[in-house]
Amino acid sequence: MNARDRILGKLKQSLAGTTPIADDYDDALLTAPWSYPAEHRVTRLCSLLQAVHGETVLTTAAEWPARVSEALASRGIDELLISPATAHGQQFAGYLALNGLVTRLKAYDRPVEQWKDELFFSTPASLTGTLGGIAATGSLVVWPTPAEPRLMSLVPPLHIALLKASEVVDNLYQIMQTQRWAERLPTNALLISGPSKTADIQQTLAYGAHGPKELIVMVLQDA
């Protein structure tokens, strides 16, 4: 017998003659205390994000590229990791072209192994989409894709995320159910609730531990 069979054998023996506890899942307990009037959801999400040093910008589907450009300019950043394969990537490129701006756009278009150094040490900012937001905890739902891989939201010191106001829901349970997560989880699914941080030295909060030092959420109010 191998370890697996021995372990399972012992566990089964310990449960001999018992019946499993029934699943009496109480969804009201996970939704009722975490429900908000529609007009308060975005406000709550923003204030929770701000409480953990996240920056939130209320903008629109047409104007966000200008806001992103300003955010980059104010930080002296002249390049952005963004996917040309996404609608928002194309919109931002279009905006730059139209306005004759020189921000260099970088695509995550090859396996990480081929450009690790550049990604880690010469990519100051990234922009990704999100699958929605959670008002209860101030979280963004991010499912990396081939166009926007996992490290895009992690390695660059500045991460900018686009969030449609209409996709901000009340709580985690709700979005799990409506988006049917259990049936279709990707290889990596993330909730992101602020920039990277740590309190490991004398309970003193410091931001930018290993992930982004800054998180800016562009909330598209009309989308």
Partner: peptide
């Protein structure tokens, strides 16, 4: 904390069309 900064759900290694992981 109401939630940690990251909740990381891993359901498999990098797929053929993925660029990291």
């Amino acid at each position: 904390q109401p939630i940690t900064t990251y909740v990381n759900v891993i359901s498999g290694p990098r797929k053929a069309d993925e660029l990291d992981g």
